[in-house]
Write a protein that binds this DNA or RNA. Structure first.
Lengths: 189, 189
DNA sequence: GTCTATAATGAGATAGAC
DNA sequence: GTCTATCTCATTATAGAC
């Protein structure tokens, strides 16, 4: 049964990467099975409700990793502007090096599923809200008012998601670097 | 042949809506054909290269409409901050009323295709760049330096694309309204 | 030139052997 | 409990009648 857990985790990790990079609709179960090295029956044993259930657990795993990365970046620098700049510049480097995104953004899955799967929409909604709150709390610590911090948290989350979209489309982290450069104008401490 | 043009335009208009709302991968040619009221042979007569060619013309049509909407909004108010706020608030209202996006954003198509179709990636890249330049030129008119205006154009485009993603996922235009409210902090004239 | 019929492939899902 | 074989359906694309 130790193996059972590992098989299920392997499914989720493989699916999480593929869903983020290629998208929900472009990723077939066959591809996930091939990369996991397991047969189809095994997948439906672990995920009786099929693709949507696998996607839900995949999105949640991706969300955990993204949130952890952001928290680590923000915790490494005390000044919130410098900390968020550091976080954005890290993402820019990843996009320049890899030209695709895993554990960076769930925008693609969110946009693909918000109309067709209420379960997945809610999962993405919660992750976006968590990210906004993480940025907000960093700002509150530095003395910015609670109300303004939560509004800026939303703006920062939107900027970063949009910046990732632009950078991926342009195949260059420069769009994100411009965001980072202009961040001090937005947050006047 | 007048009819011929109309049939082709009808294909592009129908496909453009569906690709934007449901995404490239989730939209089948059969659905486009059904909503266009034309047979399959007709589609491949007008678009010999199939789905990708239809998508390219659909993305370009969507881009034209999005750009026209932004230009009209920006032209209606002289102050650039108020003009861009007006544009963002318009999009928020549309999302609240329709819960889906047509002629508002190409983020979904961009994220779906940047890895799989160089043709579609470039088309999306050009539209994003056009939007950035439109915002930049509005700022230049108000006396902001050229360099800073182009950087802010990029930031505004990213913010809006990300804000649309958040608002659609949350089923509420409020995320976009928060962006609009915080915009004056970013652009200090 | 327009459209019907069909090919060829791959998808998600399931039944049932062991 | 695990896996193989298969089912059903939808997809893109094409061949060929008219």
């Amino acid at each position: 049964m130790n193996n059972k857990v590992n098989v299920k985790e392997k499914f989720i990790e493989t699916a999480s990467k593929l869903f983020q990079i290629k998208g929900y609709n472009a990723t077939g179960l066959n591809e996930i099975l091939a990369k996991s090295g397991a047969p189809k029956g095994s997948l439906y044993y672990h995920f009786p409700k099929g693709k949507e259930q696998l996607a839900l657990e995949s999105v949640n795993l991706a969300g955990q990793k993204i949130i952890t990365n952001v928290i680590n970046a923000l915790d490494s620098i005390e000044n919130p502007v410098e900390a968020i700049k550091f976080n954005i510049e890290n993402i820019a480097i990843i996009i320049d090096n890899e030209q695709k995104t895993s554990d960076i953004s769930i925008s693609l899955i969110a946009l693909e599923t918000y109309l067709t799967s209420e379960i997945l929409r809610k999962a993405c909604d919660e992750i976006f809200t968590s990210l906004e709150n993480i940025y907000a709390k960093k700002l509150i610590k530095s003395g910015i008012s609670k109300d303004k911090s939560y509004e800026l948290g939303c703006v920062i989350a939107a900027m970063i998601e949009g910046g990732i979209t632009l950078s991926l489309t342009k195949k260059s982290g420069d769009s994100l670097r411009i965001l980072a450069k202009q961040l001090p104008n937005l947050i006047n401490i």
